[in-house]
């Protein structure tokens, strides 16, 4: 019985997420457009995530290069470092890691902000003044995340490859030209499109989960805290699970 009740709750939650997602997506294409709010959100979501996204990807690129060279020493893999680092980063590691790290940061921020507004009746105040909280608060965040997360992913691709270059040159005694040549000859447009394509989906999941948990938070600071934790957990799980299916999908399509 308890299992049934839990399933019932999960289904209800999934339905609510889907409804919010649909309303927010529709809101992206219905005027009036609040460009000022969108740009403010881009700053908060994108520009202020540059540091974490950069550090994550540079070091991942460096580790990838080291691991590849040292774990398979006899196979001469070191001459394919550029291929290994760039393919794995661009297709997989940069989109997923950037989504996890940046998603944790911005998703929890959205929940905390909207959750505090909910428990202090600011969301009700919006509704009472005949304004739509989804259009007013969720849509600018969704628009900003849909622009900024793929942009951060692209930047992460670049920085990760640069991280690999550092290791290739200073640890593995390859020339920069050799590494760069390897990267350029192996990396295809499909690799980039599939990686950045994933990040659009991740951006959507992060925003919808973050905003939904905020808008439904209850019970003061404690409730907002719980909702925030829930956002990080649920958004991460959605990113990792959907990544599998998206990878399948992009291989089928590409």
């Amino acid at each position: 019985m308890r299992l049934l009740a839990a399933l019932d709750r999960a289904a209800e939650e999934a339905g609510a997420l889907a409804r919010l997602g649909a309303r927010a997506a529709a809101g992206l294409f219905t005027p009036p457009f609040d460009f000022r709010a969108g740009i403010e959100q881009m700053d908060q979501i994108g520009v202020r995530s540059l540091g974490v996204a950069g550090i994550t990807t540079v070091f991942t690129g460096m580790v990838m290069a080291l691991q590849t060279a040292y774990s398979l020493p006899g196979l001469g893999v070191k001459y394919y470092i550029g291929t290994v680092v760039s393919k794995s980063l661009v297709r997989e590691l940069a989109p997923v890691l950037v989504a996890l790290i940046v998603g944790g940061r911005i998703g929890s921020g959205m929940t905390a902000e909207l959750g505090t507004m909910k428990v202090t009746e600011q969301i009700d105040a919006l509704r009472s003044m005949a304004a739509d909280p989804v259009k007013k608060l969720v849509v600018p965040k969704l628009a900003a995340t849909l622009v900024m997360l793929p942009a951060l992913t692209l930047l992460g691709d670049l920085l990760g490859i640069l991280g690999g270059l550092l290791i290739a040159v200073f640890q593995l005694d390859l020339t920069a030209a050799f590494y760069a040549n390897d990267v350029i000859s192996s990396l295809t447009l499909e690799d980039v499109v599939s990686g950045v394509g994933k990040s659009f989906f991740f951006a959507f999941f992060i925003t919808v989960v973050g905003c939904h948990n905020g808008l439904t938070a209850e019970g003061g600071a404690d409730g907002v805290g719980r909702a925030t934790t829930n956002t990080v957990v649920l958004a991460s799980i959605l990113i990792l699970v959907s990544d599998f299916f998206l990878t399948k999908l992009f291989y089928l399509v590409g």
Partner: peptide
């Protein structure tokens, strides 16, 4: 119009 208990100003 409604006046909320804590004011509910947008902070």
């Amino acid at each position: 119009a409604m006046l909320f208990q804590g004011g509910a100003l947008f902070d």
